[in-house]
Design a protein around this nucleic acid. Structure first.
Length: 473
DNA sequence: TGAAATGTTGGGGCG
DNA sequence: ACGCCCCAACATTTC
């Protein structure tokens, strides 16, 4: 009978480096490394299909780093962990905190039960630079505006923890009775739609570290400007790695800081801080994923229109930059941030569909789907969030295309049917003279859709809808 | 981390 | 030389 066994429960921290819980566990005894797939606690925010695909591969990678000793389970974590504690004389269970409201509720219960079993249960900070309860205004209420949150709150809070090394020994303990394999979690899709995803991503801690290294070494110098141009390779694309914890924000923060000071560096750090801000909002406003933070939006006259929604989801709106973004999402599990804003604005404003529809679709399709970031960002673009874009800030997808994809490289990459169309009409093919369309082999309504809404009138319609809220509140 | 409408200014054409 | 108009370029306001 071994009294020194500690469980490290992997959750959104699928890495060995800079893992506070794992570090503590490995320094104090034999470690039983576990992962539990819990599909029943999250209600409508059960993990989406793209995320499950990523998770499968990330677990494979982690298991390899653990020499095949990662024990995986499916079901209720409370029952599974309590059973393990009793069967193996585990004296402590450690994990890194997650901030989804359903997880907070669940984990609190587990902590209580473990304490009742005289088992030490400890949680650590492995996913955020600052804990949401540490960055508060002077009156102890949470910040609702980003700039003071970051400039006053974060910067005056304690500096983020320096990354921890990988533990010297992993203390790999095996239960001996364990049966399930990662394949048994059935995370991969039954129809093989994931082939195109695979060609775009390398998954796992090693790949994440390399990507961070390359980003901070080569590309940070043009980040501030370059991040607006979806055709460029100027953004980090670290978001899925961060979401699954293949890399920690602390690692990214300090890797970036090791470069010389610059506007680009500052901008990258502030983008990292947006991630912190979203998590803080979700923590302090647990209804963020469903409920408008500005309640006057509860009466917004959203449309219900299945055709609109379907066209948006499949990248068939007839507005090239919107369609390019939506097809990028479908094909790669990712969308460039500039384009996320454009498609978001288009859904909520030009199509007048509820932001929940966008939030749901992104949740299912994005490899970096993250409850805090996704909810906060949709509320931001819809105008109903805490520090949101004003509702009347309607993006014009044609103008945005001309500004941020001037050569059409990004748009043509995902809409090959418009490949031959000259730049002048790439973002407004409906204005192109007949002979130019003919020459480019484009037949609107046949091989590329006619626009499902007119930009000018749909913008006016959106502003009118917004006006109806004016008298309230 | 908007875009369109409206206002202002200043240069050039022209009577 | 002058006033007038036009309009591009830029600034400000509004949604």
């Amino acid at each position: 009978m071994n009294k020194d066994i500690i469980i490290h429960w992997f959750r959104q921290d699928l890495r060995l480096q800079d893992n506070p819980s794992l570090y503590e566990a490995a320094n104090n005894g034999l470690v039983l490394h576990i992962y539990i797939l819990d599909d029943n606690s999250a209600d409508e925010h059960c993990m989406g299909a793209a995320s499950r695909w990523w998770l499968h591969h990330s677990l494979q990678s982690l298991n390899k780093s653990l020499k095949g000793k990662l024990a995986v389970y499916v079901g209720d974590p409370k029952k599974i962990i309590v059973d393990l504690v009793q069967e193996h004389n585990v004296h402590a269970v450690y994990w890194n905190r997650c901030y989804e409201p359903w997880r907070i509720v669940r984990d609190k219960k587990i902590k209580k039960v473990l304490q009742a079993h005289n088992t030490d249960a400890q949680s650590f900070n492995g996913s955020l630079l600052w804990e949401p309860w540490q960055v508060l205004k002077k009156d102890d209420t949470p910040y609702k505006v980003f700039t003071p949150y970051y400039r006053n709150g974060c910067i005056h809070a304690a500096v983020p923890r320096q990354p921890l090394p990988k533990p010297k020994r992993l203390g790999l303990y095996e239960t001996g009775t364990h049966q399930l394999s990662i394949d048994d979690l059935k995370l991969l899709p039954t129809i093989a739609w994931d082939k195109s995803l695979a060609s775009h991503w390398k998954i796992g801690e090693m790949a994440a570290s390399k990507k961070l290294e390359k980003f901070t070494a080569n590309r940070l110098d043009n980040y501030k400007q370059g991040r607006n141009f979806p055709a460029l390779n100027s953004v980090s694309r670290l978001s899925p790695h961060l979401h699954f914890g293949e890399i920690s924000p602390n690692q990214a923060w300090y890797a970036a800081k090791n470069n010389e000071e610059s506007d680009d560096l500052d901008h990258f750090l502030s983008e990292m801080a947006w991630r912190e801000f979203s998590h803080s909002l979700l923590y302090h406003f647990p209804e963020l994923p469903r409920k408008n933070l500005q309640s006057k939006f509860d009466n917004f006259p959203w449309l219900e229109n299945k055709e609109y929604l379907r066209s948006w989801q499949t990248g068939q709106t007839g507005h090239p930059l919107v369609d390019a973004g939506m097809r990028e999402l479908w094909q790669t599990g990712y969308m460039h941030n500039r384009v996320r804003m454009v498609v978001g604005s288009f859904l909520v404003k030009n199509l007048l569909l509820h932001w929940h529809h966008g939030e749901k679709w992104f949740w299912d399709c994005l490899l970096d789907a993250d409850l805090a970031n996704n909810s906060a960002s949709w509320q931001w673009i819809a105008g109903c969030g805490a520090d949101a874009a004003p509702y009347f800030r309607v993006f014009n997808p044609s103008t945005q295309g001309q500004k941020f994809d001037p050569e059409g490289e990004y748009t043509r990459r995902f809409i090959p049917e418009l490949k031959e169309l000259p730049n002048k009409y790439l973002f407004n093919p409906w204005d192109a003279p007949e002979e130019i369309l003919l020459k480019a082999g484009v037949v609107l309504g046949e091989n590329y859709p006619k626009p499902i809404v007119d930009l000018k009138s749909s913008r006016v319609r959106a502003l009118d809808a917004f006006q109806t809220l004016k008298n309230q509140e």
